[in-house]
Design a protein around this nucleic acid. Structure first.
Length: 257
DNA sequence: ATGGCTGCTTTGAGCAGA
C-alpha cells in the first residue's frame, strides 16, 4: 500500500501536476492540503479521469484538505473537523477508512510570527490534534496521519538550522509539540529509513530557496506502530518542486508492504 | 537582518503562506 501526502498550494493551479503525479506514482491513497477551493470547485472530473475518487473538506481562498483513493476502493466513515464540538472556521482535517487504515489528512496552521495570534492558534490547534489522536483514533490499530505539519522536529530536518532556529517552523515549543504527538504512539515514518539530513519537503518560493538547498522537512506521514512495522520505504518526489508552476511543497510518499 | 515568490481576492493592492 502506497500512501502519499502533498500540499498542492491551490488545486486549481496544480491540477495538471496532480493528474500527472497520480498517473506516474499510482498511490493507493493521496492526502492533499491547501486546496484553496470550495468542494464544488474541486476538479473531480480530472481526478476521475486519472482513475481516482476524492473526498474533500474545502474552503475558499485558504486551507482545504482532501483524501484521494483509486476508483473502486471503498472510502468509508469520512469525518471532517476534529468533531470535538469546538467550531474551527478553517478546514484543516479530514479522515476516512481506506484499505484497512484510518487515514487523516491534516494541514497544521503555519503560526505567523512567534507570539502572534496565529502562533497561539497553532499552539491550541496542536493541542486539539493531540486530543483528537488520543480520543478519536484507535492508535492500537492501523492509522496514518499525513500532511503539512509545519514543524521541522530536529536540526537535521533543516538545511540551515541557524537561519530557522527562531521561526515558527523550528521553534523549541513546536519541536516539543511534535515529540508529544509521537509519544501518543506514532512513528515518524521518514525516520525509519533516513537517519541523515532531510529528506526536505518544502522550500520557500522566495530567496531561491530550492536551488540554494534551503529546505525543511515539515510534511510528515505519522503511522501507528501497527502500520509503521510494515513501512518498507519513504521518499520525497523532489521533481515536483522543479519546472513550471511547482507547489512550494514536494510530495512525500510512504510504502507499506 | 530583510526580502526577494506565488496564489488568492467584490481586479488589484494587500493578505497569507512558511
Amino acid at each position: 500500500m502506497k500512501i502519499a501526502t502533498w500540499n498542492v498550494n491551490s488545486v486549481r493551479v496544480r491540477e495538471p501536476r496532480l493528474v500527472a503525479f497520480l498517473g506516474r506514482e499510482q498511490p493507493d491513497v493521496l492526502c492533499l492540503q491547501e486546496l484553496k477551493v470550495v468542494d464544488d470547485d474541486f476538479p473531480h472530473e480530472a481526478v476521475r479521469a486519472a482513475g481516482y475518487e476524492a473526498v474533500t473538506f474545502g474552503q475558499k481562498t485558504y486551507n482545504g484538505v482532501g483524501i484521494l483513493a483509486k476508483a473502486g476502493t471503498k472510502v468509508e466513515n469520512v469525518s471532517r473537523t476534529f468533531e470535538d464540538g469546538d467550531d474551527d472556521p478553517q478546514a484543516r482535517v479530514i479522515a476516512a477508512d481506506v484499505l484497512g487504515v484510518r487515514v487523516v489528512s491534516i494541514y497544521v496552521p503555519n503560526g505567523g510570527d512567534v507570539g502572534s495570534e496565529k502562533w497561539a492558534y497553532k499552539q491550541s490547534w496542536l493541542k486539539r490534534l493531540r486530543t483528537y489522536a488520543s480520543s478519536r483514533l484507535d492508535l492500537s490499530g492501523k492509522v496514518a496521519i499525513c500532511g503539512d505539519i509545519n514543524i521541522a522536529p530536529e536540526a537535521r530536518d533543516v538545511a540551515k538550522p541557524d537561519r530557522w532556529k527562531n521561526s515558527v517552523l523550528f521553534h523549541p515549543e513546536m519541536t516539543a509539540a511534535f515529540q508529544e504527538l509521537l509519544a501518543l504512539g506514532l512513528v515518524d515514518t521518514a525516520r525509519i529509513h533516513h537517519s541523515g539530513e532531510g529528506p526536505f519537503t518544502w522550500w520557500d518560493y522566495r530567496m531561491l530557496a530550492f536551488p540554494k538547498g534551503d529546505g525543511l522537512r515539515i510534511d510528515h506521514i505519522f503511522a501507528s506502530k501497527a502500520l509503521a512495522s510494515s513501512c518498507s520505504g519513504v521518499r520525497v518526489d523532489r521533481d515536483e518542486r522543479k519546472g513550471a508552476q511547482p507547489s512550494d511543497h514536494a510530495p512525500l510518499i510512504a510504502v507499506f508492504s
